[in-house]
Nucleic acid binder design. Sequence first.
RNA 1: GCGCCCGUAGCUCAGCUGGAUAGAGCGUCGGCCUCCGGAGCCGAAGGCCACAGGUUCGAAUCCUGUCGGGCGCGCCA
Length: 668
Amino acid sequence: MILPLHQAIRVRLRAVLGELYGLDAETLPEIAVQSPPNRALGDLGTPLAFELARRLRKAPRSIAAEVVAALGPVEGVARAEAAPNGYVNLFLAREPFVRRALAGGSEPPAESAARAKVIVEHTAINPNKAAHIGHLRNSAMGDTLARTLRFLGVPVEVQNYIDDTGVQVADVVVGFQQLEGASTADVAARAAEPGFDYYCWDLYARVAEWYGADADRLAFRARALHEIEGEGNPTAEIGRVVAARIVRCHLATMSRLNVDYDLLCWEGDILRLEFWARAFEVLKQAGAVHLQSGGPQAGCWVMPLAEDGGGETEARAKIIVRSNGTVTYVGKDIAYQFWKFGVLEQDFHYRPHDGQRSGRPLWSTTSTPPAEGADASAPTGPEPPPPPFGRAGAVYNVIDTRQSYLQQLLKDALAAIDRPDAAERSVHVSYEMVALSHATARLLGYEADPGERRPFVEVSGRKGLGVKADDLIDRVTAAARHEVASRHDDLDDAEADRIAAIIAVAAVRYFMIKFSRGKLIVFDIEEALSFEGESGPYLQYAAVRATNILRKLEARDGLDDAALAAALADLPGAPLDDPQAGELWGLVLEASRLDEMADQAVRAVELSVLAKYAFSLARAFHTFYHRCPVIAEERREVRLWRAAGVLYVLQQLTRALDLMGCEVPPRM
RNA sequence: GCGCCCGUAGCUCAGCUGGAUAGAGCGUCGGCCUCCGGAGCCGAAGGCCACAGGUUCGAAUCCUGUCGGGCGCGCCA
């Protein structure tokens, strides 16, 4: 991994600047270490001479020359060069670099339990219908972020917020009651059957249409919404049945994509445990909210909007508690966010939820404490106590860009209660929506709106318009299955299915991650089914090719990973410095940058960085594959070093894929 | 009206805390299976980085303005 080397170089350069010019390390800006555009220029380079030119009243070129002359030995660096234009370029010691890379290849990432825990909240799909492609973008980003943070040694807690008491669930309940005359038992029976999430998808669309036909019917929604927050009434019971079942459907869908969670947070529990009451106290004590005495907002508790500046702040304050005393959505969200940062001295109760395919234990919040002794009688023995949830040092909320205003209010609220640290570390991971191409919308049977001028069609749950996540995965899997079968006629059905599933996951997840988050994705089914070019399967194919080389090497020469390592131990490194070895060296160097890219992805909160890097590494490998044969190479030293490079690339590519929740299939 | 996001090749997009010659994929055209599997590789054509100023040794990147597009801004959730 190259990041520690960057750091060592920075430290040395800072010392050199101190020795040469008496510059204080404190007053120096962070020294940029970057990759030169062309490997011939160097393996790493820094433009520090440019920044110092004015301060030192010297030409960059001479500063660079002086720095290079004074640099002295740096661990891992073979030599330095001052480029004529002023760059300081570094050439790494290749042999030790490759040896260290291979040795560290199997090491687990540096654990640092001392670092503050980070909460990543993602998915948060309304539990009233099947998940669609828009939700996949959220989950793919959130899961990749969580995996990347863990890779960097940060303790992570993944939460999935379940809005079980919102309008969307209420609407489906109204559908069951008013359109189907269903009882709680009827709904429970239907929920136990397969395809409940698809059934509710259609029902939800029907309810929306039903409301549209007669505005008076919206009264049913208002009543259901009220009842659903309570307990012991049929509406609440049906709501519970629906939400519980749909959440299981969502978890099953996400599990297909290797997405998992630590905790399900139910909005109903936040209400029943009255988190808001405590949050309200905190806000009032800090003077963050006040009661509006006059004007249109008279009788409401409001929070002044930050940075309003003008004299109209009073009129434009954000209402947190309505004049009738009920709390708004914003208030509930503030309470939840406060809990995440440990601001409320209050906690949920917890119960274990179903197991996850990944094996990661999943917990669920509840409103009631576990019954005494009940667990001890269970066949599995007493339940382990829940881990300490909440109280995070930083929070990432993965929610689409339309929630920006609300997310800003959460930061404002934290700042208003004098928790600027929490406000600062309250990060909105915003992203644009996923829309449908006209061609795909047409394929779904959607009649194009003649007034539609935009080049895409917005997904709409109310209209029932959208590509369901499971349908997408099914279609991509079928396409992958077809491809696999056409390439291998010796695979049995189970194996072919397994490989197709692995490929489909990569295709879908890579597609959701490769665009930067501010970009609207216009989803086109044909494009998604293409496994050529910049796609998940392209990355997997590179890894499979690497695996094949190593497998053949083992079959022919009996050289497995351990034997290869042993053979390298007493192998001269000279072939690496051969000018012809440039291809191999460039590949290894590129492969070593995974930690640099993971770090950058987190700092910029831009997961596409990771996707682009993995793609470029795969591309570099494919090129190498064509130019530099391994098996057929006759010179033993060259062959072994190439094999070492292939092994390292495979390790790094596998890790990069893992960060995106993708696996390497055994064949493809 | 205010706020956020977007504008780079025919299309879809990368371009890192400003840095060396603006890069990919798709599409088009032309090559490559006697060679570790062609879901691949190599090459060609294709760019006033929306526009105009500014800051800087240096701007696709930062600042201001203009134009075009998207999304928010409720005693809804």
